[in-house]
Nucleic acid binder design. Structure first.
Lengths: 201, 201
DNA sequence: GCCCCAAGTAGACGCACGTATACATGAGTC
DNA sequence: GACTCATGTATACGTGCGTCTACTTGGGGC
């Protein structure tokens, strides 16, 4: 949890507004994703960021403002859908796993999924994200391959549901799915591909 | 929300401990599932049950005790796995959809999924439930059909993830998946079947 | 070297929460 | 018909929450 292991060119200056703001946001992301919004007091976020609760209010206005700032997923993942059809699942999986790796527990999608029940605007942001980045593009692709509209939407929605379930499973319930990044990616990838390709019963 | 529309043989007696206890539990199930444990005050549960907060303490000891009473899923669904392999997905789907219908928003699985992040014992109960009712039986079945152990576990875990994602999607994020009970059941059923049957890439 | 404002702290306020306690009340018993 | 205890209410208490206000501190510009 040490921030600067030394060796960095920048001096260990304190009183840096930008760094403080980032520290608060990072702490909030991790804690909101891991414990949920309601179960995360502002004081805990402040402690994790190494500052005082008052600063959270100063920089983000309120806990609500902090949530909005942190849950605004600038996340763009639809690019991974480009390329050959057979590899869509694998590319989505690789994207998810690498995101989990770099962001720790602070996956914005997880924050939104967990908060969606008690915060309607979180559900709205999540719906928009899914439509823009997964459902929409997937439906377009499937239609281009001759899949009827209704079935294309169902398959894309199934992928959404699986992705949400997988992120909840892995990071909240925990030991669901295989261990290890490669095995995990293979698990997600082949499952997504199966949901995309299966024939309607 | 009226409880006795009249016509029932029992007189409209008040001061019925059993009925009160049930009313509290039902209200708690619905609210915990819809808004999550942390975001549901005891006072709200009491109001929904038509009684006073003190009675919640009297009947369940504490909010914690209420949660434990309500999240203890006596739910048994593994029986639907019996029967021909091709219909497993459809039978699981029918079971889920009918459960949602009769329990409203109070699906115990949803309660557990939502609480798992902030309440470790909820995660534990959920893991036990999944292992006992879905993962375990599914692995046994798949193995009996010649699927290797590791792949059987992965497929069963994928079903778990999808089911959790589907319940979150439908009841929290909302408009994911098709409308109507039959279409919904077909969506879940064919997705589950696809996850069970797909060849590993 | 002093000034001054941004950066940060300390502490308190009001409120809602979970819970405990004291009181009211009605249905069954004799 | 009075008794009585389970059932239910009213209300108060302590705590932890989000937020606000007043104060302190440090670093860059002249």
């Amino acid at each position: 949890m040490t921030e600067e292991p030394a060796g960095a060119p920048a001096p260990p200056r304190t009183r840096d507004a930008g760094r403080t703001r980032t520290a608060i946001a990072d702490a909030a992301r991790a804690l909101f994703a891991e414990h949920g919004y309601e179960a995360t007091p502002v004081r805990t976020v402040a402690a994790a960021a190494g500052i005082t609760p008052g600063l959270v209010t100063r920089y983000f206005g309120s806990k609500d403002g902090l949530f909005l700032a942190v849950s605004d997923v600038g996340l763009r993942v639809s690019a991974v859908l480009d390329g050959p059809h057979e590899g869509i699942g694998a590319r989505m999986a690789a994207s998810m796993v690498s995101r989990w790796r770099q962001e720790g527990a602070g996956d914005p999608v997880l924050i939104l999924v967990r908060a969606a029940g008690s915060r309607p605007e979180a559900a709205h942001v999540l719906r928009d994200f899914l439509e823009r980045e997964t459902t929409g593009p997937l439906v377009t692709r499937l239609r281009a391959e001759g899949v009827p509209e209704a079935e294309a939407r169902d398959r894309a929605s199934a992928v959404d549901a699986f992705v949400m379930g997988a992120v909840m499973s892995r990071r909240v319930v925990d030991p669901v799915g295989p261990d290890g990044d490669e095995a995990l990616a293979a698990w997600i990838g082949s499952s997504v591909q199966a949901l995309l390709d299966h024939a309607r019963s």
